[in-house]
Computed example of a mutant assay.
Amino acid sequence: YGAAKAGVDKMSHDMAHDFKPYNVAVVSVWLGLVKTEKVMTIDANKSKYGPMLAVAESPEFGGRIIDALYNDPKRMELTGQTFFSAELADRYGVKDVDGAQPPSGRGYLGPPTEFSPIVIE
């Protein structure tokens, strides 16, 4: 799981370098627990993920964040970086479909990988 996340973060970082001349922003977003059909079958009393169900994100939450990022005229300042979905939501004032503000996963997942800044001249 961790290797896959690191791979996506690195791919996003590299793609940001390749696409920056075309004014295309590329970011990696770490979603929280998403209320997929499978997740919603979890027995909250028996699973280690049970307590997280109360703050899980709807499938639409990530899309709302990407929409806000797309509409940010300064989005190119974020290209090549990795973010927690809840922290981007805070930045843009995005709420989940039920009006909730899911918490950041930073406390239990640790910080996203940081790469060297991209310098394209």
Rank of each mutant, 00 (worst) to 15 (best):
H17R: 15
G7I: 00
A100F: 06
P21A: 08
N71Y: 12
E37Q: 13
M11N: 09
T82Q: 08
V29E: 05
N45M: 10
A44R: 05
Y49F: 15
S12Q: 09
M76W: 03
S85P: 09
Y22N: 14
D43K: 01
M15F: 14
R91Y: 11
K20Q: 13
D14P: 00
A89S: 04
M76I: 04
L88C: 09
A25G: 07
K46W: 00
G32W: 04
F61C: 05
P111V: 09
I120N: 09
D98I: 05
S47K: 02
H17I: 13
G50I: 03
V8P: 11
E87C: 00
I120K: 07
L33K: 01
V97N: 08
E37W: 00
D96L: 07
L88Q: 07
K5V: 09
P102T: 03
K74R: 11
I66G: 02
S104A: 02
D90M: 09
A54K: 14
F19C: 14
L78C: 09
A4E: 10
S28H: 14
Y92W: 04
A4T: 15
G63N: 08
I118P: 10
R106F: 07
Y92F: 14
A3T: 13
F83D: 07
V8H: 12
I118E: 12
T41M: 14
P21N: 10
D98Q: 06
R64Y: 11
W30C: 03
I120W: 08
G105H: 00
V119D: 11
T113Y: 01
S47G: 06
E77R: 07
K46I: 01
S58W: 05
S116H: 05
P51A: 01
P51F: 02
E87V: 02
A16G: 10
E37N: 12
G80S: 10
L69M: 15
G105L: 11
I65H: 06
M15K: 09
